[in-house]
Design a protein around this nucleic acid. Structure first.
Length: 123
DNA sequence: ACCATGACTAGAA
DNA sequence: CTTCTAGCCATGG
């Protein structure tokens, strides 16, 4: 973006029930102290291989209302791949630790234990 | 319409 | 174990 587009808050600028809203809705269901992966969310939406779009959708999570716990979404190995996209760098890790999730070297230690699969838990 | 990019993932070498 | 390749599809130039 060469200049800021105040007119379009959303990535597409279209309706709110777009692909992004679906991602936000699933992300909002993540229980406190749990995390999930982009691929897991994508799988629930029907396209497991479109995990990239989930990440891209998270790009707009900051301006989504109500708030979306994007910090609870990491990649498949529990690495905080999106930590650099948070306002204060390190906020993501800080929030996770605050919820009882152990993070070491930008990676979730007990990832398997805190992993939350929306396809099985949400239903 | 075409091309490049991206907070990803699975499989192959 | 690491590194590479291909697939995915919305968005922007």
């Amino acid at each position: 973006m060469t200049k800021q587009k105040l007119t379009s808050i959303k990535p597409s600028g279209k309706r709110e029930e777009s692909f992004f809203e679906l991602v936000y809705e699933v992300a909002r269901q993540i229980p406190k102290g749990r995390v999930t992966s982009y691929g897991a969310i994508a799988a629930v939406l029907g396209t497991r291989l479109s995990a990239r779009m989930v990440g891209w959708a998270m790009n707009g999570a900051g301006r989504a209302r109500p708030k979306v716990p994007a910090h609870r979404v990491v990649n498949r190995v529990g690495l905080l791949s999106g930590k650099h996209h948070f306002k204060p760098t390190g906020l993501m890790e800080k929030l996770l630790k605050k919820e009882g999730i152990k993070v070491k070297d930008d990676k979730i230690v007990n990832f398997k234990e805190v992993f939350w699969d929306p396809a099985k838990e949400l239903i």
